[in-house]
Amino acid sequence: MKLAFVFNYPLIDNVDWKKTAIQKSIDAGYNVDVYYGKTHLSQYVKAYLTKRKFGNTSTASNRLKEKKEKNYSFFVKLGIKPVKVKDINSQKAIDRIASKNYDYLIIAIDQILSKRFIEGINSKILNIHYATLPDIKGVNAIEWNYLVNGKCELTLHYIDAGIDTGGIIRKEEIPYDKEDSFYMMREKLQKKIPSTLLDFLQSSKENVFENKGGLLYTYMHKEIQEIITKTL
């Protein structure tokens, strides 16, 4: 099976689940490539300012403070040379990915894929959403899911042209402690991603559930996050 993982920001990416998922995929005998979008410095600055504007830069800064090995160098050590593209939606990136005929693309990026990308790459696209679908679509999914459902959940789903509207493959609920912050809930949720992903890739059955209805959420205001965090 040929897999491609698509991430952003190669200079700062040190998220553990990506290392584990790719290591496990290689161990399972899959051919793995990695693509990195948003490689230009201005894109880092824009991403920082956007996160700052909407009230939450703590996740990224906490992660950077940990000074873990960057994923890019880890992948190189594994024998994968990540491909860097400035814009994943560009025709150049689409042509390059399409030419490899991947079985699955696993996406973990902070941008919307264009219709041109989705239709042009000749592969199924997978995404892990940090809330239960179809109920909670959009960003700050952990926070909204906690507020609305009182749970910490993830959903593996296909990507189509809408926002979190592709068919649902599987959902998992992750136990959390009362004292957990949203950052800790995110960490617990991310630890679950590699096994969820590999279970799906290794299973022969593919039941896809409809992803209709639900509500689209956007950034949760900092003051709301602060109030509900106090109750965690």
Partner: peptide
């Protein structure tokens, strides 16, 4: 529905 409150806060 706190989606609306959040938008209003912004």
């Amino acid at each position: 529905d706190f989606r609306y409150a959040s938008a209003a806060f912004f």
